[in-house]
Amino acid sequence: MSDTKALPRALRGWAEREIGVVNDVRDASHPRKNSRVWELVRADGCRFYLKIAPEARMYERETLAMRHATPALGAGRAPQLRASSAEHLALLTTAVPGRPVKELPLTAAEEYEAHRQGGLLLARLHAAGDLTGRWRREAEGALGAATQGADKRLEDAGDRLTPAEHTLLRNLAAELRRVGPLPLGFIHGDAWPRNLLWAGRAAWIDYERSRFAPVVQEFVALACGVWADKPWLRTACFSGYGRELTPEERHVLKCLAGLEAVSALTWGETHDDPHVTARGRRTLDRLMTGVFA
């Protein structure tokens, strides 16, 4: 959490017109330059969050999610939108009880239950929204969009990859272009443990990457991250989700993991982030040895 990002006076005034006088403002931004989030606390102790989206598309996605999809999760399972400002790309939302599961000292049973409930909520989210017209076209074209630039990413990776790794990743990208119809839905788009809150029950936050897409795309971050260390959390998630991935979805997940791996390797080294680099390398090693699932 940073202490260097002050809430603009105009935005504080806008927020107070919506929720009343704010007694305390706390910077709740992530440690990156384009994250601007503040926690607002009224005199009665009620908490809210004011977020400036990094770009217009993310503002539009998060606004759409909160107006048309997240209510399906149930009360207290996602933030509620109190107001939005297209001029400032700002969203004012209620606070949700809990802390990110990655920050909590949970027992194995508690962590299992948090991820089980997380999967249950993702199932509700995937079934929400109006999957017609523009949104269906966007969902049906999502895998094609994901493969765009794959060759350029492999070229940028250069000698970070061995010849055998280059071949594998090119083959996975080519296979992704030949995939048939898949189950579609409204996905969270950033389903990491940092966005899964727990306080005896689960909630998902941060919907700026949400969109209509093949639902298998939801699980790439988990498969390349926490599931590699704790495979039993995969079991927990799909137990709550209500079904396993189909064989075709499992294959697509593997192909998408290849794209994620090369992106993580390149981004991590370019931005001097050893954690992201290590995640990309581990995913690639799992793909090369055939243990990715």
Score class of each variant (00 low, 15 high):
Glu55Tyr: 08
Asp44Ser: 15
Val37Phe: 02
Ile52Ser: 01
Val37Cys: 10
Arg77Pro: 03
Asp44Phe: 09
Phe48Lys: 01
Asn34Val: 06
Gly45Met: 05
Gln80Ala: 15
Arg42Trp: 04
Ala72Phe: 09
Ala56Pro: 05
Phe48Gln: 00
Pro31Glu: 09
Leu50Arg: 00
Pro79Gln: 08
Glu60Thr: 10
His30Tyr: 09
Leu40Ile: 05
Ala56Arg: 14
His68Met: 07
Trp38Arg: 04
Arg61Asn: 13
His30Ala: 14
Thr70Ser: 13
Arg57Thr: 13
Phe48Gly: 00
Arg67His: 13
Arg57Trp: 08
Glu60Lys: 08
Tyr59Met: 02
Arg32Phe: 10
Arg67Met: 12
Ala65Met: 11
Lys33Ala: 13
Tyr59Val: 01
Leu40Ala: 07
Glu60Asp: 14
Tyr49Ile: 02
Leu81Arg: 05
Asp44Gly: 08
Ser35Trp: 05
Ala69Asp: 00
Trp38His: 09
Arg47Phe: 01
Arg61Gln: 13
Val37Leu: 11
Asn34Thr: 10
Arg32Leu: 11
Ala65Val: 05
Leu73Pro: 04
Leu73Trp: 07
His30Pro: 00
Cys46Leu: 14
Pro54Val: 09
Leu50Trp: 03
Ala75Arg: 15
Phe48Tyr: 15
Ala65Asn: 02
Glu60Gly: 04
Cys46Arg: 14
Lys51Arg: 14
Met66Tyr: 14
Glu39Ala: 12
Asn34Glu: 12
Ala56Trp: 06
Ala65Trp: 03
Asn34Cys: 00
Ile52Thr: 09
Leu64Pro: 00
Tyr59Ser: 02
Gly74Asn: 11
Leu40Gln: 03
Arg36Gln: 12
Arg77Tyr: 04
Leu73Tyr: 08
Val41Glu: 13
Val41Asn: 03
Tyr59Glu: 02
Ala78Trp: 04
Met66Trp: 05
Ser35Met: 05
Glu55Asn: 13
Arg47Cys: 12
Ala72Ser: 15
Ala53Trp: 04
Asn34Trp: 06
Phe48Asn: 00
Ala69Lys: 01
Arg67Ala: 11
Leu73Ala: 09
Val37Asp: 03
Phe48Thr: 00
Val37Ile: 13
Ala43Met: 06
Glu55Gly: 06
Ala75Met: 12
Asn34Tyr: 05
Leu81Ser: 08
Ala53Glu: 04
Ala72Ile: 05
Gly76Glu: 08
Asp44His: 10
Thr70Met: 09
Thr70Asn: 10
Ala69Arg: 07
Pro71Trp: 10
Met58His: 08
Ala69Met: 12
Tyr49His: 12
Val37Glu: 00
Met66His: 15
Gln80Val: 15
Arg36Leu: 10
Thr70Arg: 08
Ser35Thr: 07
Pro79Ala: 08
Arg77Ser: 12
Ile52Val: 15
Thr70Val: 13
Gln80Ile: 08
Leu50Asn: 02
Pro54Gly: 06
Pro54Ser: 13
His68Leu: 12
Glu60Tyr: 01
Leu73Ile: 07
Ala75Asn: 10
Pro31Lys: 04
Ser35Phe: 03
Val41Arg: 15
Lys51Met: 06
Ala53Tyr: 00
Leu50Asp: 02
Pro31Gly: 02
Trp38Glu: 02
Arg67Ile: 07
Lys33Asn: 06
Arg47Met: 07
Ala56Thr: 12
Pro79Ser: 08
Gln80Asp: 11
Ser35Tyr: 04
Cys46Tyr: 06
Ala56Leu: 14
Ala72Asp: 07
Arg42Met: 06
Gly45Tyr: 02
Pro79Cys: 10
Arg61Met: 07
Leu64Gln: 10
Glu62Phe: 03
Tyr59Phe: 15
His30Thr: 04
Arg42His: 06
Gly76Cys: 11
